Simulated assay, not measured.
Amino acid sequence: MPKTPMHCPFCDIIGGAGEVSVCYEDAVAIAFMDIQPVNDGHVLVVPRAHYERVDDLPRETGLHLYGVATRLMPIIQQVTGCRDLNIVVSSGSAAGQDVFHFHVHLIPRRAGDGFDVPLPFPGSAMPDRTRLDAMAARIISALRDPMASPTPTPAPAA
C-alpha cells in the first residue's frame, strides 16, 4: 500500500498542482522533464502512486517503470543525438535521493559534460576473492531461505 507523504513535490505534479513538461503518461506512470537537468533530454520516470524508496515499490510497478524507461530511452537518444545514457535510481538519503518519491532518471550523456558516476569507485579497494565469495554465498542463502520475509517472487518465464 502506498504511503501518504506529508508533502511531496512529485505528488503535487501528478495531482496537477505544479508545472511540468510531461513526455509520457499512463495509468501507472508519468514521465517528465527534470527541472535541473544534467543535459537536455533528462527525464524522470515516476509512479503515480507514492512510494518513497525502491524497497517500497511493488514488483509489478517496478517492472512497469522499467518498461516505460526502456521505451523512452531510444526516443531520448534520437531526439537529443546522445547515444550514451545513464539510468540512475537513488534510494535513500545516503544514496543521494533528495525527493522521496521513487523515480528513475534517464540522463542523456555527452563526452565531457562534467557529470560522473565513477564506477569502479576510486576510493574502493579490490577485496580478496574469499570475501567476494562469502558475500555471494550469503546472498544465495538469503534468496533460498523459505522463511525469509519478504519472499522474493521468481521472475516470470520468458
Rank of each mutant, 00 (worst) to 15 (best):
V22R: 02
V54R: 08
H103F: 03
F115R: 01
S91T: 13
I139Y: 11
D84N: 15
A157N: 10
S90K: 13
A142R: 13
G41W: 03
Q77C: 06
F121Y: 14
V89I: 15
M73N: 05
L72A: 03
I35D: 08
P118S: 09
C8W: 07
C82M: 00
V79C: 00
N86I: 10
V54A: 13
I139S: 09
D34H: 07
R131Q: 14
M135Y: 15
R110M: 09
D133V: 04
A94S: 12
I76L: 08
R59F: 06
V28Q: 04
F115M: 08
R53V: 09
A148H: 13
L106I: 11
R138E: 15
Q78E: 15
D145V: 03
V89C: 02
M73W: 07
D145I: 08
V45A: 04
P5S: 04
A27E: 14
V79Y: 12
D113L: 08
D12Q: 14
G114E: 00
M135W: 13
D56C: 06
H103C: 04
E52G: 13
E25W: 00
V46C: 07
V20E: 10
R110W: 00
L143A: 11
V38L: 01
I139G: 05
P146A: 03
S124N: 12
P47F: 04
R129A: 15
T61C: 02
A29K: 05
A142C: 08
G18T: 10
P5A: 02
E52H: 03
I14W: 05
M33F: 11
Y24L: 04
A95Y: 11
Q77P: 03
S91V: 02
Y51N: 06
R59G: 08
A136N: 10
S21P: 10
T130R: 12
V54S: 12
A142I: 02
F100Y: 08
R71C: 01
D128A: 13
H50T: 11
P74S: 00
